[in-house]
Every structure is written in structure tokens, then in C-alpha cells.
């Protein structure tokens, strides 16, 4: 099955049809939940990454900041996923030929894998090796902010 065939099936589903028939302000609400989730995730990554770079909340330890922001990251990702589905489904086929759409999701896959591997490992200790800590911070910032930027660009294609 090609992606287009899959997206066609998804777009033709009854839930997709239901969403698509709603008032267009429902789309705006979905985008607002998407923005909320986005801010929760980006700001959490920002605060921890700045700390890994020796900037920002330097009086707190890295594990402390990760612990305090962990729930924002998971709530944020949940909001992003649910709202993302609402945004995607009614126009699924429309996204298939869009290279920015695919770039965003490939980058998201990379970011998620890094988040549960490298990022988790580096932020577990109070004093990770400086080069590893800083590289992880830079990669995390580039990945997540890159996803956000690409996401905005999808609509401009």
C-alpha cells in the first residue's frame, strides 16, 4: 500500500468525515491545542538544553529540571498528537505530495528516539561529560525547533 492509498483510506473514514463537516472554527481550536502542546514541549526542551549548555537555570541541577518539566513534555506531546490527528485526517491526501510534511515527521521520529535514548542518558546525571551534554543540547534544540518550523511551513507549500 502506498502512502497515498493509506491517506485516502484515512481521509475517507467516518471519523475524518465527521471532523471535516464541523464548523471551520473547530480547525482553529485544534490548532490552538497544537500551539499549546508545542509551547509546553519547546519550552521544556529549551530550559533543560540551556542548562546543559551552562545557561539559564544554573542553580538547579539537570535532573531536577528534567523532572520538573517531564510532565509538560508528555502532556504537550499528547496534545500535539491528538490535535495533529484532527488537523491531518480531513485533508490527509492533500499532505501526501508535500515534502515538508514528510520532513517534519522524519525529524519527529529522530527527535523522539533521541529523547528516550541520548537525552535521557545525558540528563540522568548531575554532571555529564561536557562535550556530550552540550552536543545533546544543541541536537535537541535543533530537532524540536526544526520540527516546529517545518510544521508551520507545511501550510505554505
Amino acid at each position: 500500500m502506498t502512502s497515498l492509498e493509506l491517506f485516502h483510506t484515512l481521509q475517507s473514514s467516518s471519523i475524518s468525515s465527521y471532523i471535516g463537516h464541523q464548523d471551520h472554527l473547530v480547525g482553529a481550536v485544534a490548532q490552538l491545542f497544537h500551539i499549546t502542546g508545542l509551547i509546553l514541549v519547546l519550552t521544556s526542551i529549551l530550559v533543560v538544553s540551556l542548562r546543559l549548555l551552562g545557561l539559564g537555570l544554573v542553580r538547579q541541577t539537570v535532573p531536577q529540571l528534567v523532572k520538573a518539566t517531564a510532565r509538560f513534555v508528555w502532556v504537550g506531546l499528547a496534545l500535539l498528537t491528538l490535535s495533529g490527528i484532527v488537523i491531518f485526517l480531513p485533508a490527509a491526501e492533500h499532505y501526501d505530495p508535500n515534502p515538508i510534511f514528510w520532513f517534519k515527521f522524519k525529524l519527529l521520529a529522530v527527535a523522539l528516539v533521541l529523547h528516550v535514548t541520548l537525552y535521557r542518558k545525558v540528563t540522568q546525571t548531575e554532571a555529564a561529560a561536557p562535550v556530550l551534554a552540550k552536543s545533546t543540547a544543541v541536537v535537541a534544540l535543533a530537532a524540536w525547533f526544526g520540527i516546529a518550523f517545518a510544521g508551520r511551513f507545511i501550510g505554505f507549500y
Partner: peptide
């Protein structure tokens, strides 16, 4: 896009 990203540094940190 930069306006949106800026939200993480402004609205996000104030949040």
C-alpha cells in the same frame, strides 16, 4: 515561523 518559535522563549518561559 520565527514569530511562532519566539513564543517558546517568551510565552513559554513566562508560563
Amino acid at each position: 515561523g520565527v514569530h511562532l518559535i519566539g513564543l517558546a522563549f517568551s510565552v513559554g518561559l513566562i508560563l
